[in-house]
Amino acid sequence: MSEPLFTPDEQKTFDAGIAELLSHYPPDRKSAAMLPALRLLQSLKGWLPPEGMQQVATKLETTVARAYEVASFYVMYHTQKPGKYVIDVCTNLSCALRGAEGLLTYLEQKLDTKAGTNGPKYFLRETECLASCGTAPCLQINEDHHENLTRAKVDALLEKLS
């Protein structure tokens, strides 16, 4: 027998979370809770493992195929296990005009990786405008937002990643 997906505590959190989410929608529209349900699963496991997708589909009374269709449409869902630190760097126009291309190169060198490669520790990605255009350049590390970046600030941020 393989390990169960959730620890008993996680299972409780998941079940209660889904029940709460379903109460936000009409009773005949359970599958509307798909986005928040996937977010809940990902917050517990760090990604969307197949057994979790099955549980989401069952609770929402829909098919696993539908769950995957949604998960693959949105970039924030990880259907593959990502590196420990997902680093999203905005390289859109406002940020590019404030040094974002240099920021990306700087990170590639410091982390010894290439943007777009999912490594065990770092998953460095280019991302689109993060609504920080007036406070550019910016990045997110595991969804924590950092703006007005300089080399010194990036150094300090990276130091905290063990």
């Binding site: 809770a33 449409f73 949105y74």
Partner: peptide
């Protein structure tokens, strides 16, 4: 009156109003 926040998941198109509604219905945008 009930007010709920629903968080998107990284798709610019979901800012378009009908894609936003599809997404609120739990679908791709």
């Amino acid at each position: 009156l009930n007010v709920y926040q629903v968080r998107g998941a990284g798709a610019y198109i979901c800012g378009e109003e009908t894609a936003l509604l599809e997404s609120l219905e739990g679908k791709k945008g």
